[in-house]
């Protein structure tokens, strides 16, 4: 049973943005797979929602040269059904594959997963490793923000209350690259992530040309381990440098104890999984 709330059902993006404009506490509602449990569990206090269910213009996967853009209403099932995402963003595909259960994947959207701001949102580490950008739209215009700069703090982002995240886009990774994701949880199916790691390694002529490492559930927000990335860029990777980078990534974590795991365990596994994924990725590209 949910608490009573208002729901408007615009059929176009323009109407949706209008509905969000000028009102203080109005929030968008897309797949509702997070919102419904949060409303029911009294964690969500908003009582005025704008449904994006009818805003079909936000449900698309577009390609323009190397640029891939997902409309915010694109569901996890859409990502899995698309023939290209597996190569255009392998880590994202991997995250979508193990995203909750089949029914939730039908409903849950990429925009919703990004905007919920949870540190355990599984698509976010993957998107960070492809340097994804998000487009934030409002009646007064739109702006594009690097996903890396989107989150401010636990469940807080730069998104204004009158803005809607309308798309997520990124450039297809370089030819010789590996993009991996690992979700560590207390069971294999449909569980909240304890430690999530995504990496992207591109190489040319035996040298790492681009390194991206993003970690989930080990800090108030999903984040990029930039110090670790810097250690790897421009180098031929070996066991020692990978270990050093993994250590740097773990140093950037600020995990908490909760009922799923201790901070200490999260630190340890952030280190070992980063090391493992970097090793695997380097093996793939060299």
């Amino acid at each position: 049973m949910l608490p009573p709330f208002d729901l408007s059902q615009p059929q176009s993006l323009a109407d949706a943005l209008q509905a969000l404009a000028g009102k203080g506490d109005t929030r968008p509602l897309a797949g509702a797979t997070n919102l419904v449990p949060d409303l029911r569990g009294k964690r969500e206090t908003c009582r005025d929602f704008v449904s994006l269910d009818g805003v079909n213009e936000l449900r698309y996967i577009k390609r323009d040269g190397d640029r891939v853009t997902l409309g915010a209403r694109t569901t996890m099932a859409d990502i899995l059904d698309d023939s290209g995402i597996r190569t255009d963003a392998p880590a994202l595909y991997a995250a979508a594959e193990i995203f909750a259960g089949r029914m939730v994947r039908t409903a849950a959207t990429i925009g919703g997963n990004v905007c919920c701001g949870s540190p355990s949102a599984d698509t976010v580490p993957a998107l960070l490793t492809v340097d994804a950008e998000v487009t934030l739209s409002s009646v007064s215009g739109q702006r594009t923000v690097a996903l890396d700069e989107f989150y401010i703090d636990y469940k807080k982002s730069v998104l204004r209350s009158d803005e809607l995240l309308t798309s997520v886009s990124w450039n297809v990774p370089p030819q010789n690259s590996a993009n991996l994701f690992y979700k560590l949880a207390r069971r294999k199916g449909d569980a909240i992530t304890v430690t999530g790691v995504a990496v992207m390694i591109a190489a040319e002529d035996g040298v790492c040309t681009r390194a991206r490492i993003a970690l989930g559930s080990v800090a108030p927000t999903v984040f990029r381990a930039s110090a670790a990335e810097d250690l790897l860029a421009g180098k031929a990777l070996d066991e020692a440098i990978i270990e050093q980078a993994a250590r740097a990534a773990a140093d950037q974590c600020a995990p908490i104890d909760d009922i799923r795991a201790s901070a200490d365990y999260r630190l340890q596994t952030a280190f070992s999984l980063t090391r493992r994924l970097l090793t695997q990725a380097w093996k793939q590209v060299s």
């Binding site: 419904v36 029914m103 409903a107």
Partner: peptide, 13 residues
Amino acid sequence: GEPVDSCLTLAWH
């Protein structure tokens, strides 16, 4: 034709 959890789906939708 698509599977959903009806507990997460608003009737209006």
